[in-house]
Structures are given as C-alpha cells and as structure tokens.
Amino acid sequence: MGINPAWKPCEISPDSISAGSGAGVAALAEWLDATPDLQGLLDREKALVFRGFGVTEDQLGPVMDRLLPNRLAYVHGNSPRTKVGDNIYTSTEYPAEFTISMHNELSYAHSWPARLMFCCVTAAETGGATPVVDAALWLEALDDEIRERFADGIRYTQNLHGGVGLGKSWQETFETQDREQVDAFLAASRAVGEWRRDGSLRVTQLRPATTLHPRTGAQVWFNQSDQWHPAALGDETAAALARLLPADELPQSVAFADGEPIPAEYVLQIRDRALEAAVDVNWRRGDVLLIDNLLVAHGRRPFTGARRVLVAMSD
C-alpha cells in the first residue's frame, strides 16, 4: 500500500454532503445513517473532519452513537484527563505552553482503541491545533538503524503511586479502588504488576514497536517510546527528574525489549520526524475529528486562551 506524503484528513461539510435537512447535527446524523460503509471510508481516508455542523457538548450523544458504536473507558491510560460523561474525557491536560508529541492512543498497552473521536467545544485563542500524521509515513521516515533496533519490541515500566506522589495513581489509571480488579486486568493483558510496601504499583510490559493494520495491511509505527523517555522532555526537565529519582523509579520509563537503554538521539529523531510530517487540524468550535488509531497518530500544539476539546474512543 503506497504512502502519500501529501496526505491530509478528509473534510466533510454540509455542502459536500448536500444535506437536505440543514447544516446542523441532524444533517450529520442523517448522512452517517445513510453511509453504509463508514468503516471503508475511514480505512481509505484514515481521518475524517466533520466541519460546519456546529456540534455542541450536549449534542455529542447522537454523533458518538454513530461514530463510536462501542465506547471504551480510558483504562490504563497514562495521560492526565478528566472524565466528563459516559466514557467521554477531556483531551490531555498538559500545560498549554507545551507541545504534545505524536502518538497512537494506548499503543503501549495490550489492547487499544480502533477509533478516536475529538470534538472542539472551545477553540483556543491562538494555536492549539491537533497535528495528525500517517503512521506508515512515520515508520518510513525513520533511519534504518532505528527500525532495526526496535524490531524486537519495547519494554515499558510504570510506577503508579497509591494516592500521593509524582504522576498518576494506580486508582486513576485503572478507574478502580480494587486491587484484585487491577491484578485481573494486568493478567489478561500479559503485563506484570508488582505491589510495593508503600501502596504503589509497578507495571512492566513488553510490546511491539510496529503493527499491521487488520484491514489495509499497512505496517505502522505504533508505540510511545519517545513519550516515555526522559530525553523527549527536554534537557532541563530530564536533568531535574534525574536529580529527584533514579531512572527505574520515574512514573514511566522505556527500554529496548532486552532491557538495554534507548539512546536519546533515537527518541529525538522519532519525536521530531513525526512532528515534521504532521498536518495540523486547526480547530473551529463544533468541529469533530474521527481518526483510525492505528493508521494515524496525533498530538497537540501549544496554545493560549481557553481550549476545550473532548475525546472518546471505541474498539
């Protein structure tokens, strides 16, 4: 399957669908009901932007019912976000001045969502775009040396505190207070959990660096090695964390599958080449973005002013 360097999401507007019932949510719902092969369209286009339908937060239900038929909880997620409804969350709540690098949601986990849907409730005053990148193009953009070294996969480690500490707690991460539920989840996902005396939990898991899309057959870069590596945080932040904690005690860390450290220059290339190849979705209030989570990675540009983008996911 060829890679198109000029790829960008497919934009769908009331004009493009000749909506007979107007330009609002009802028109979008009508079009989705009349589209027999939305999955095929998403396989071909990889990402869809629904623009001009004026979707509001209280109108999300009918849209999500059609785009995400089986919404999932953000269990085992490592980024900070707030649950605002039935498996509806705010987008990652990192400080506005930082770029969030490209990633496929939950690519470090045993299972991941097939689709992600974003809805812009409030557009930022400046910036705040969601960059998206073709994950096959991302893989192709990396040096052969990096692709070869990652061929055996990645070892991820999480240190989740029990209520007070750096990063997320295990209770937030797994959306439960029940240790037995966590143990069952980890066993089913082939991850190793170690409960510690201070009430924290260490999770270790081995995962592949690439995967094949089940329908298109595309091979894609599919991991979060750069986001879990301190080098991607910048020299000052990485140095500050090193002074606070040894590497194996950080909230999250990453290594090659054999346990060898991943060189900083590898993760910086991985991060930067994805951002360079990315296409920005510049939000307007009421926009909805649907992406195939294997074929497309996403991130966030810095912004000023208020910004509220909601996200939900499905298998």
Rank of each mutant, 00 (worst) to 15 (best):
R207H: 07
E249Q: 13
D287K: 06
G61F: 02
A277W: 06
R197I: 08
L137S: 10
A129P: 06
V296Q: 11
Y156D: 02
A124D: 10
G167E: 06
I3L: 11
E172L: 09
T216C: 07
D43Y: 11
A255K: 10
V63A: 04
A141H: 11
F174V: 06
L250Y: 11
L241F: 12
L201R: 02
L42F: 04
S21R: 15
G153E: 05
Q224H: 14
D248F: 04
R196P: 03
I262N: 10
V192H: 14
A238N: 07
V132T: 10
L245Y: 10
Q59F: 02
S18R: 12
L137N: 09
M313Q: 08
R243S: 14
T35V: 00
L268R: 13
V133Q: 06
A184S: 10
Q59H: 12
L60F: 06
A231W: 12
Q224V: 02
A23S: 14
C119L: 14
W31K: 01
E276R: 13
I270L: 10
G77N: 09
G193V: 00
R197K: 12
R207S: 09
G167Y: 05
R115W: 01
E172W: 13
N159E: 09
L139P: 03
R51C: 03
L142H: 06
G217V: 03
Q39G: 12
L275M: 14
Y156I: 01
L116H: 10
G162N: 10
R71C: 07
E105L: 07
H76A: 14
L310K: 04
L206D: 12
K46F: 04
A278R: 08
A209V: 07
T90P: 04
A109R: 11
T211L: 13
E260F: 01
A312K: 08
L38V: 00
L295R: 04
V267Y: 06
V220A: 14
W228E: 02
V296F: 11
Q269C: 04
K8M: 11
D43Q: 12
Q269E: 15
S101E: 11
I146L: 15
S101M: 08
L245E: 09
G54M: 02
P14H: 04
I270M: 12
S101K: 03
L310Q: 03
D280C: 03
R243H: 14
K168F: 08
A114Y: 09
R243K: 15
I291W: 01
P302W: 00
P251C: 08
K8Q: 14
P95R: 03
L294D: 07
E125H: 13
L201C: 03
E260K: 11
L245C: 05
G40M: 00
E249P: 00
F98E: 15
K46H: 05
L42C: 04
V164D: 13
A73M: 04
